[in-house]
Design a protein around this nucleic acid. Structure first.
Length: 422
RNA sequence: GGAGAGGUGGCAGAGCGGUCUAUUGCACCGCACUUGAAAUGCGGAGUGCCUUUACGGGCACCGUGAGUUCGAAUCUCACCCUCUCCGCCA
């Protein structure tokens, strides 16, 4: 959500933002609703002031004719104003709905583009492995080594279901532990956050109302969040922090659920696209300052890259084009890992900042040295997506004999340096 | 799942249809008194919105949302949350 005053004064920015993000939004409709809202408010408030005035008089007039006359006068004022009150209720409903649809303004550095095809590569890191054999897919490798069971997964969990077994399960634990150790040194607060969340949390983080189809919900009207960002951000709902408590840096662990409603036919096999997974997510709340947001954005990306480098996984960083940005995102980087079996990079991390788009919806503020409360800025980035990360990890480290080498940083967490017979 | 109690300003805690611009206490800020402090006295403090060049003015906010009423913190309904007891349970 943006500030209505800002929207009013910068109509053309919103139009450009919608265009760049390839989002349909008519600012004119919102501004029209806002004009109606303000006209009605002014008129209603004038009448209310009058009512308040009379109210005092009635209270101090003893029962009798004079009092009855005042009450009759009040009744007629009320009849007039109730028409306007009803109209305002209708206008406000329209206004609120539109306010939730206003796109945040993308940064100047965000490239134009129709889809993720137009995301721009910023840099690549690492050396793609060269095999003197045809590299196998993670599916084949994991099934051969008994690290995963997809057919039993589908049997038990349904489409896109999976089991991780043996070193496959251990590898996932190892990645979590390794990641947590890394963020201990960066002074992030470790948190295990709920995935079962209320609707307001998803409205607040900007996943609703637009993302309804991709979310599971329960018979008690709760939702299953698709990322720990939701729980971690919602932790601060309606809070006013002190400026010296910022930045808040959270490394949130959670179960994540995605319906993948629009992805039928994509990545139907293996671990690339599953309905249920675990993720460690970086979340930062910082002061309301663009430069500070940008600084933290680069910091989040740097941490995510550090993890990839430590795991020795070749990757590239892209800057997402306008159409590939969410409604609330100002700018986003993706990290894409090299997948030998597909001979292409696939997204593993997503790193974005929002300015006060989310905190406005969640009502997260901080009090500055001047005593004024402001909406904080928020950012988040993937730290460790599992089991997706197992794909590049296993595929890039596969050996001619079908075994898989464990990267050095994980050996201690795994208790072994290789999976499968040598 | 069943029964009950309750949600009021930073905190504690009154008010249960009009005199509430929400009593009071604590904490906070300013001023006075004081060499300084304590104590005391006086005064001030929240959030959001509308309006105004500005000074200012107005409206709303007693968990949330509807309703009754000329008038709601107070009455009615729904929802959310907290606590106590019983039941079930990893």
């Amino acid at each position: 959500m943006l500030d209505i005053k800002f929207i009013r004064e910068n109509k053309e920015f919103i139009e450009l933002a919608a265009k760049k993000k390839r989002v349909k939004f008519d600012v004119g409709l919102l501004l029209k609703a806002d004009d109606e809202r303000r006209t009605l408010l002014t008129s209603i408030e004038k009448k209310r002031a009058e009512q308040n005035e009379f109210n005092g008089q009635i209270a101090s007039t003893p029962t009798g004719g004079a009092r009855e006359a005042l009450i009759a006068r009040m009744k007629s004022i009320k009849d007039e104003s109730s028409v306007e009150e009803e109209k305002l209720t209708e206008v406000m409903k329209r206004w609120r709905k539109l306010m939730l649809e206003v796109p945040n303004i993308p940064d100047m550095s965000v490239p134009e583009g129709e889809s993720d095809e137009q995301n721009q590569e910023l840099r690549t890191w690492g050396k793609k492995p060269s095999f003197d054999f045809e590299p196998k897919s993670h599916i084949e490798l994991m099934e051969k080594l008994d690290l995963a069971d997809f057919s039993r997964g589908a049997e038990v969990s349904g489409f896109r279901g999976y089991f991780l077994k043996n070193e496959g399960a251990l590898l996932e634990f190892a990645l979590w532990n390794f990641t947590n150790s890394f963020f201990r040194t960066k002074k992030f607060i470790p948190m295990i956050v709920p995935s079962l969340v209320r609707r307001e949390t998803l409205l607040g983080t900007g996943y609703l109302p637009q993302g309804e189809d991709d979310l599971y919900h329960t018979q008690d009207s709760e939702y299953l969040a698709g990322t720990g960002e939701v729980g971690a951000m919602a932790y601060f709902t309606n809070q006013t922090l002190q400026e010296n408590e910022l930045p808040q840096k959270i490394i949130a662990f959670s179960d994540c659920f995605r319906r993948e409603a629009g992805s039928h036919g994509k990545d139907t096999k293996g671990l690339m696209r599953v309905h249920e997974f675990f993720k460690l997510e970086q979340v930062i709340l910082c002061e309301a300052n663009h430069e500070v947001s940008v600084k933290h954005h680069e910091e989040l990306l740097a941490y995510a890259e550090s993890l990839m480098q430590a795991l020795e996984i070749p990757y590239r960083v892209v800057i997402n084009c306008g159409a590939d940005l969410g409604l609330g995102q100002v700018k986003k980087y993706d990290i894409e890992a090299w997948i030998p079996s597909e001979k292409r990079y696939r997204e593993t991390h997503s790193c974005s900042y929002f300015h006060d788009f989310q905190t406005r919806r969640l009502n997260i503020k901080y009090k500055g040295a001047d005593g004024k409360a402001r909406f904080a800025h928020s950012l988040n980035s993937t730290a460790m997506p599992t089991p997706r990360m197992l794909i590049p990890l296993i595929e890039n480290n596969q050996q001619a004999d079908g075994s898989v080498k464990i990267p050095k940083v994980l050996v201690d967490y795994m208790g072994q340096d290789r999976i499968g017979i040598s």
